[in-house]
């Protein structure tokens, strides 16, 4: 563990401030709580919100898993995992089932999460209304008054133009029937996993200085129309490494002739399945 810094880098006063924001977020599911985000030794936009949330809830007995794009060994996941190994000295793992705390960028693990686990999302733009209304003063009002018609204007526009809702990631959801929330840029494939998830879901946006939360077993509904219901992505082929046909796949270009293969984006789930098959 690094000398000269507090456990998990942040000072205790800052952690208390962030925990208060988290508690408020848990109490008002889907509501974006402003918090005094600190400058972190990693750049804004690279997970500083998630890191601050993780630093505020992590304890010495936690087992931490960090993924980026579903994988444990993408460079930024490695960097963040090392940061906590260095500043908190906690045990780290790549196994979803062993982790008590999972920080993620852009994916929810394929293996269902359990009660007692915490999933921390890194969020670049916490405001789901941002693309229709750039002004914070206005969007806060729209949330306060649940004026969400404009979200459906966007979905309507997609269907009119493309014949279907064309958002494939960061697909907006309604939490607990009240707040419209950005699920962070996870693929819409993962949206159904958020609904009534037994684990606690925490979202941190460092640069935008917002924290929000979905408590365990809370309803999370993807916005849609009655006659154009929400759908997730599907692939014609299973994962070419483990054979799974119910997971989110990455496309890998294997030569300069345009040959491609499709493999699981969740590297841990893929390896576990391969081991099981062997």
């Amino acid at each position: 563990m690094s000398k000269g810094y507090n456990f998990a880098y942040l000072d205790e006063q800052t952690k208390r401030m962030i925990r208060r924001a988290i508690l408020k977020g848990v109490a008002i599911p889907g509501y974006q709580v402003p918090f005094a985000s600190r400058e972190m030794p990693l750049p804004y936009g690279w997970g500083t919100g998630g890191i601050q949330v993780t630093a505020s809830v992590i304890g010495p007995n936690d087992v931490l898993k960090v993924i980026d794009q579903g994988a444990d060994d993408t460079t930024n996941a490695v960097s963040i995992r090392r940061f906590f190994a260095r500043t908190a000295g906690v045990k780290t793992t790549e196994r979803t089932s062993e982790a008590s705390l999972i920080q993620t960028r852009h994916r929810i693990p394929e293996q269902p999460l359990k009660e007692g686990q915490i999933l921390v999302y890194q969020v670049p733009i916490p405001e789901p209304l941002r693309w229709m209304e750039p002004r914070e003063t206005e969007t806060r009002k729209m949330h306060a008054l649940a004026e969400y018609g404009v979200m459906h204007v966007k979905l309507y526009e997609d269907i009119a133009r493309f014949g279907r809702i064309a958002s494939s990631y960061n697909y907006p959801v309604l939490v607990h029937g009240r707040y419209v929330m950005a699920p962070s840029p996870i693929p819409k494939f993962d949206n159904p996993k958020m609904d009534r998830m037994p684990a606690l879901q925490l979202f941190g946006a460092g640069r935008e200085k917002r924290i929000y939360a979905v408590p365990p077993y809370t309803s999370v509904k993807s916005l849609d129309f009655e006659d154009h219901p929400f759908e997730v992505q599907r692939w014609d082929k299973p994962c070419e490494l483990c054979g799974a046909s119910d997971t989110y796949l990455d496309e890998v270009i294997t030569d300069d002739q345009g040959a491609r293969m499709f493999v699981c984006s969740d590297s841990d789930a893929c390896q576990e399945r391969q081991k099981g098959a062997a």
Partner: peptide, 9 residues
Amino acid sequence: LPHYVDFQG
């Protein structure tokens, strides 16, 4: 940073 997952979507 990698955006493979979103780009795949």
